[in-house]
Design a protein around this nucleic acid. Structure first.
Lengths: 215, 215
DNA sequence: GTCTATATTTCGATAGAC
DNA sequence: GTCTATCGAAATATAGAC
């Protein structure tokens, strides 16, 4: 799987800090293992080994495997929503959508495992976070659709379906995380360099921004 | 999971036909179960129940769970490659890439489970089909990149990175299969209607074809 | 709070009658 | 080729000493 990592430093500290540190180590290890093996393929033993803890300690902090998984998925969802900031208060589509692409591509680069856990959860019918899809995500989506529609009505961009544009933004940016292994294999087996990431970002932005600009 | 389905009809027929029918029923059930539960989450019992067969019969046709899974993934890969036909011998980018988008969107609509199994396999590091990525897929990709580059050199489209354009095509079209559950939830819980599928197709084609056309 | 040892369940795979 | 019954391995979860 991967070598043990993220051992919490053993400095004298408050119990609260120790607890927070252990929880964080467990969550980080869990995110990696769930991303690499899926929920069904992941075992508590793998997560414990990666976190450098006995298996029983995981059950002390999180009652069940599903409980731990739920926390991992929720953490990821927070990160998704934060990228929305780029969208709001933007004066025009190029700024708003271009900034959103930048933010989402950066998340794919820095949190590929989180993206994979989310993708896996949704692909399997969202058994754990269905309520989030129906409440928070739906509200967020409706809000962004309204923003895009206003741009269209103002003649600032072409009259395309805002909803499907959003899906395109999610798909293209998350592809570099979810299918990162395939991208790397087709890149000669080497991870994308800084320049190659920039090319990816520029290509996505150029095609989409040119694709939606007013005729 | 899902109600049993795809019982082979019990007509008098040759042994070969009976075998082919049973194998097909197993593969269809396996594709559904692997898509819904992932490799680790799937059990031979689930697949057997869905196929309407005793669990032992699965091991008669496929020695191990991994052997069965391998066949499912290979079947999907064939379908991907067939969509390449739209690409070749096209006189211009709009025809070639537009046709490819149509073909891939149609695959997402008709074979969402296959797409999910492929996505899951790649997300987990392609443990089973890594050799396909490094041989067949790499060759296919290099060939398509050459075609696109020729269009660019001929001034028929904008000078964007052909490789990342391909990734965009894969991402946007497969999103409607892999994230179909999310798309359906954001569609009010109802599957996309025929008209909504057409809107999705048109939006993807319009944005990408406008995004790459020569300036 | 942490750890070792173990109970309990579940799953992949097989044996063997038909 | 098909099925019932079962083995053996592996995983989740817990008990209980420290």
């Amino acid at each position: 799987m991967a070598p043990p990592t993220a051992q919490p430093e053993k400095r004298p500290q408050s119990r609260q800090a120790a607890r927070a540190q252990t929880e964080s180590a467990i969550l980080t290890a869990a995110q990696t293992v769930f991303a690499e093996a899926g929920f069904g393929g992941a075992t508590m033993q793998m997560i414990a080994d990666l976190a450098g803890l006995p298996k029983a300690n995981l059950h002390y902090y999180y009652a069940t495997k599903e409980d731990l998984y739920r926390h991992v998925v929720q953490d990821i969802f927070e990160i998704w929503l934060d990228a929305a900031a780029s969208f709001d208060h933007a004066p025009d589509p190029a700024t708003g959508i271009g900034g959103y692409i930048d933010a989402k591509m950066e998340i794919s680069r820095r949190h590929p495992n989180g993206s994979k856990v989310w993708a896996s959860e949704v692909m399997h019918g969202a058994p754990v976070i269905q309520d989030y899809l129906e409440s928070t995500l739906r509200d967020w989506t409706d809000g962004r659709i309204a923003v895009i529609q206003k741009w269209i009505d103002a003649g600032q961009m072409a009259p395309i379906s805002p909803r499907h544009l959003l899906y395109m933004l999610w798909a293209t940016t998350q592809h570099y995380a979810d299918f990162g292994h395939q991208v790397q294999t087709l890149n000669g087996g080497k991870p994308l360099s800084k320049a190659e990431w920039q090319t990816a970002k520029d290509t996505v932005k150029q095609i989409i921004l040119r694709g939606i600009r007013a005729a």
